[in-house]
Design a binder for these strands. Sequence first.
DNA 1: CTTAAACGGTACCAGATTGGTCCGGATTGA
DNA 2: TCAATCCGGACCAATCTGGTACCGTTTAAG
Lengths: 151, 151
Amino acid sequence: MLRLSKLTDYAVVVLTTMARTDGALHTAASLTERTGLPAPTVQKLLKLLARGDILASHRGATGGYTLARPPCGITVAQIIEAIDGPIALTDCVDGQTGSCGVESLCARRGSWDKVNRAVRRALDDVTLADMAAPPLFFDAPAPERGTALAG
Amino acid sequence: MLRLSKLTDYAVVVLTTMARTDGALHTAASLTERTGLPAPTVQKLLKLLARGDILASHRGATGGYTLARPPCGITVAQIIEAIDGPIALTDCVDGQTGSCGVESLCARRGSWDKVNRAVRRALDDVTLADMAAPPLFFDAPAPERGTALAG
DNA sequence: CTTAAACGGTACCAGATTGGTCCGGATTGA
DNA sequence: TCAATCCGGACCAATCTGGTACCGTTTAAG
């Protein structure tokens, strides 16, 4: 797998919708309508994103949500962390010991850290602005000649 | 999360154990003893790794498993794919439509493809030789990659 | 001051997925 | 023949995710 949760996927849908009208105020209800996602799910998403400092919330009547930063300042890594928690491929992050019963396992723990960092960097490199960019067609002449495994 | 399965983690433990005696033949029983992991789990892992062309299996009495390639030729991406299946962060891979009920969702599908590829590249960049390398302290000057382990 | 609209937090449940186990069958060297 | 080993399923329990509901708090409008 190495799959991120469906919620994170939905979050990007909501965020790109908001990014199209950067700076505007959106209510949970309006975003529900515009995205077509189930209402309670959208509410949950917005709460999480607000906690993660990706959205700014405005309470009370005429309240709603706005992007906390311009889209180019919001990275995929931040979105994932807001929804799914810290990005860590393995259960026990480096440095910790004892959480996993097997001793020989933790010995190799530091090795994953390298992978973690590489993935992290890749995720930090893509912003919401990139995600909101035109969907560009896929049958266009592929500039890469790599094998592009069915990812 | 963006968490990979515990099985994959175990797989690395088993593989690094094998890598230390590159080329040698290992049985499921011996690897169980050396790693301390539960026996049925090790068996399952070895089967999966053999199917994924990461291990070569030898049947019959005096059979066992060997690494299909030198450690520097086995990437983390390959291991993950062998255990967890194809690396795809989102449910519907690019190009497909209709699998997810929500229409506005699939429209942004292509955006994830960029992220997918970035992560994939990061995972392709780390080999089993790297994982088997000494646990090295984190503030030490990192030596060049490509250890003598690979031969 | 009352009302209503909107966010905030928490608890809860069903379904899917993972981790772990077991058993019988096939292969091969002694 | 016999025993050691891999091979391929089926199977079950535990965990996690996705989705829902409820109630409290805040705040603008009338």
